[in-house]
């Protein structure tokens, strides 16, 4: 009996929230700094932001099962492929790209269903005291035998890798990329493992010559947030932006879309618009060290020191990642990329 009473009390406490001025966010970006950003939003607008964080797959499943009873308004994730999958599954509604958003976010980085809120570059890391790579190196070049046993990268189940390979398929074709993956895997210095940061550390430690990882990880280490040893290690490493002679460096996005059954759609649009204001963008670039999605905001100095005038691949539409990811994963696993 006590149990029932207690649960009912809880339930009513929970339900009490439903009618408040709020917006409910499902996010697979676990950054604590995002929560601080939402607090700023609440201060400015009085709209409370409720958050559940988790793995993409699980959150997606929950949204699907909750269906029209779902209280989730906004879905935020760190991969264009995931956003595209949500769109394809019919989980988003249109209207994410409001006029204000259209005026500041480049067209390739949004659709009617979702909007990029920050950019991320997947680059090559090397230790200049040991290696002097050709500055015009491309992702495609990394399959050459001269790189045998020299490259580290994380596993094929990482969406960052899936999106990278998806962009290769999009640009070079499936057959070509299949051959590329096969040769590329032979160049691994160790079986794929660990997260992006541990790839960079492997280069700093001399375990490999080249690491492929996202840029913000090095800034995280340089910021001292990971302790002084990692800061020292990160200083040994430089960034090479691939494909400068061609389409440019592979760019992915963090982004958000409004869910189909969002009970607070207006507030969700307000939050989205807030996320692309210069104020919010500054907060993002200085905490997660991603690249800003709008013009007029500089990346964190920890990132801009590696160069700002590199060519970003904004030709390959990020919305194609979703279509190619499954194919990408298949050819990666077939090639023995664990």
């Amino acid at each position: 009996m006590k149990f029932i009473v207690a649960s009912l009390l809880f339930l009513s406490a929970m339900l009490g929230n439903v009618f408040a001025n709020e917006v409910n966010v499902f996010t697979s970006r676990h950054y604590e700094s995002d929560i601080e950003l939402y607090k700023k939003f609440t201060e400015q607008t009085g709209i409370k932001v409720n958050v559940i964080s988790g793995e993409d797959g699980a959150l997606q499943k929950r949204i699907k099962e909750e269906d029209k009873d779902s209280k989730a308004d906004l879905y935020i994730t760190a991969d264009a492929g995931k956003l595209g999958t949500f769109e394809a599954e019919g989980l988003f509604q249109t209207g994410a790209s409001s006029n204000l958003i259209k005026s500041v976010v480049p067209e390739q980085l949004r659709t009617e269903y979702w909007v990029g809120i920050a950019k991320r570059a997947r680059v090559i890391f090397y230790d200049p005291s040991r290696t002097t790579p050709n500055p015009n190196l491309s992702y495609e070049d990394l399959s050459y035998p001269e790189f045998k046993g020299k490259i580290v990268i994380r596993q094929s189940n990482s969406v960052y890798n899936q999106s990278l390979v998806a962009s290769l398929i999009e640009n070079d074709g499936l057959e070509e990329t299949k051959i590329w993956v096969k040769e590329f895997v032979k160049n691994f210095a160790r079986p794929a493992k660990g997260n992006d940061r541990s790839q960079i550390l492997a280069v700093a430690a001399g375990e490999a010559d080249y690491a492929i990882a996202n840029t913000y990880y090095i800034a995280l280490m340089l910021s001292g947030e990971k302790g002084s040893e990692q800061e020292v290690a990160a200083r040994k490493v430089k960034i090479l932006f691939p494909n400068q002679k061609g389409r440019g460096t592979h760019m992915n996005i963090s982004g958000a879309g409004i869910l189909k059954h969002a009970p607070n759609k207006d507030n969700a649009v307000k939050l989205l618009e807030f996320l692309v204001t210069p104020e919010a963008q500054k907060h993002i670039v200085n905490n997660t060290f991603e690249y800003p999605i709008i013009d007029g905001v500089e990346p964190s100095p920890l990132i801009s020191q590696f160069g700002l005038d590199f060519k970003q691949d904004l030709e390959t539409n990020v919305s194609t990642f979703a279509k190619r990811q499954a194919e990408a994963l298949r050819i990666m696993t077939e090639a023995g990329w664990n």
Binding site: S7, F10, L11, M14, L15, R62, E65, K71
Partner: peptide, 15 residues
């Protein structure tokens, strides 16, 4: 109606 919101995303559902 409303069974889902009682059991998914609630303490009761977790229990």
């Amino acid at each position: 109606f409303g069974i889902k919101s009682v059991f998914i995303g609630s303490v009761l559902g977790l229990i």
